[in-house]
């Protein structure tokens, strides 16, 4: 049903979006924790910084990434030399762009669910013998799980649809950075490519829809297990 070119675009897109979400999950948990629990006044600034990709034109984000992490930039060349990690014009760059654009969407629901947790329940866990780390693992994280799942789905969808920052930072390289939206854009630009574009559009609708349905099913299951008081 899928042509090999379509399959390549689809699997690359899924791979890039999945990598983006998984790689940004731990930092997102940390930032959400900080925003939910810290009493530091400067946290408004951190909050604004996290949300910046949401309001900035994606092209600007992509350009900043290119300037900051390009091969010739300080950080970029250091990363390439030390870890062999190159972002510009690589699939990793597409994943990074997707991760940054999806980050605010990942952080927000996690933060909200952390804020909804009654810290007195965590205190109760401590009196029952749970060390701070165990309190987080056995009480905080399970209670925040619906928010984590919601955030992951939103960030996944955002990474899957990411266009502006990706094409600016990672360009449009078939098999490397040509994800679904970039492929669709490319076909639309070519005379007679509408049919190919339409097929990819249908594929991306199907993928997004199934992601939403799966997340809803997971969320329901989690809610059934832990209905709030």
């Amino acid at each position: 049903m899928l042509s090999s070119a379509q399959a390549e675009v689809l699997s690359l897109s899924l791979w890039v979006a999945t990598t983006a979400v998984l790689a940004s999950l731990l930092p997102a948990l940390a930032v959400a924790w900080f925003l939910a629990r810290s009493r530091w006044r400067g946290k408004m600034l951190v909050d604004a910084l996290v949300h910046l990709p949401l309001v900035l034109p994606p092209v600007v984000t992509g350009y900043l990434l290119l300037v900051g992490l390009g091969r010739n930039s300080l950080v970029g060349s250091w990363l390439a030399e030390t870890f062999g990690l190159v972002f510009a014009f690589q699939w990793t760059g597409a994943a990074l762009a997707g991760a940054i654009m999806g980050f605010p969407l990942l952080v927000r629901p996690i933060r909200l669910s952390l804020e909804a947790i009654d810290t007195r329940v965590e205190a109760a866990a401590a009196t029952l013998g749970a060390s701070p780390v165990w309190v987080v693992l056995t009480v905080t994280v399970p209670l925040a799980l619906p928010g984590v799942i919601a955030g992951m789905v939103l960030a996944f969808a955002r990474a899957l649809g990411e266009f502006g920052a990706t094409i600016t930072f990672a360009s449009n390289i078939p098999g490397e950075t040509r994800t679904l939206p970039i492929a669709i854009y490319t076909f639309i630009q070519v005379p007679g490519g509408e049919n190919e574009a339409l097929q990819l559009i249908l594929i991306s609708i199907a993928v997004s829809l199934s992601a939403l349905i799966v997340s809803e099913l997971i969320a329901r299951r989690v809610k059934r297990l832990q209905a709030p008081l």
Partner: peptide, 13 residues
């Protein structure tokens, strides 16, 4: 310390 609070504070999950 076995602490019983005013509210039960059970683990809802």
């Amino acid at each position: 310390i076995g602490y019983v609070f005013q509210q039960a504070r059970l683990f809802t999950h």
